[in-house]
C-alpha cells in the first residue's frame, strides 16, 4: 500500500516491493539469475506503478509538469519499442495528416488506455492544423 507521504528514494524505502513490468521483483534481478539464464531484457523495463509513484513524488515536490510527464510515461510502458518510435515520428512536423494524428490519439486511448497522452496528441493535432504542420488530408 502507498503511504500518505511517499518516502524517497524508493530504492531505500520500498525497494523490496518494486517489480519490473514483467512482475519480477527487484530482488530477483541479480547477476546470479542472469548467469542462470533466467532474465530477459523485458525484465529491466519499468512498471507503470513505479512511474506513478515517481509522479506522485514529483508532484509533492512541486514539479507538476514532470509529474504529468511521468504519468504519460506510465501509460506508454506497454507500447512496443517500434510502435513507440513510429508514434514519435508521426508527431514530428509534416509527417501526418490531421486525421492520422487524431486516430493515433484514439488508438492510444482505446488500445493502451493512455488518456493523458491521447490528450496531448489531440492538442498537437489541433495546433498542427492551425499552423499548417499537418500533411494534406487524404
Amino acid at each position: 500500500m502507498i503511504k500518505k507521504r511517499l518516502r524517497y528514494p524508493l530504492s531505500e524505502t520500498i525497494g523490496d516491493s518494486i517489480r519490473s513490468r514483467t512482475e519480477r521483483p527487484l530482488a530477483e534481478l541479480t547477476l546470479d539469475n542472469l548467469r542462470l539464464g533466467l532474465l530477459a531484457p523485458e525484465d529491466f523495463l519499468i512498471h507503470s506503478e513505479a512511474l506513478k509513484l515517481q509522479a506522485q513524488i514529483a508532484r509533492a515536490g512541486g514539479y507538476r509538469q514532470l509529474a504529468s510527464n511521468l504519468l504519460r510515461a506510465a501509460e506508454l510502458v506497454d507500447i512496443p519499442n517500434e510502435k513507440l518510435l513510429s508514434m514519435y515520428n508521426a508527431l514530428r512536423p509534416n509527417r501526418s495528416t490531421y486525421e492520422q494524428l487524431t486516430s493515433l490519439a484514439d488508438e492510444l486511448q482505446n488500445v493502451y488506455n493512455a488518456e493523458e497522452t491521447a490528450k496531448l496528441l489531440r492538442e498537437a493535432a489541433e495546433i498542427y492544423k492551425m499552423f499548417g504542420l499537418c500533411l494534406a488530408g487524404s
Binding site: 529491466f44 511521468l70 504519460r72 506508454l76 507500447i79 514519435y88 497522452t117 496531448l120 498537437a124 504542420l133
Partner: peptide
Amino acid sequence: FIDGDDTPWSKAFLASAYASRG
C-alpha cells in the same frame, strides 16, 4: 523549432517515451 524537425508536442512525447523505459 520546425527546422529542428520537432515541435514542443513531439518533444514532450519523446520525453515520456524515454521515461516509459526508465
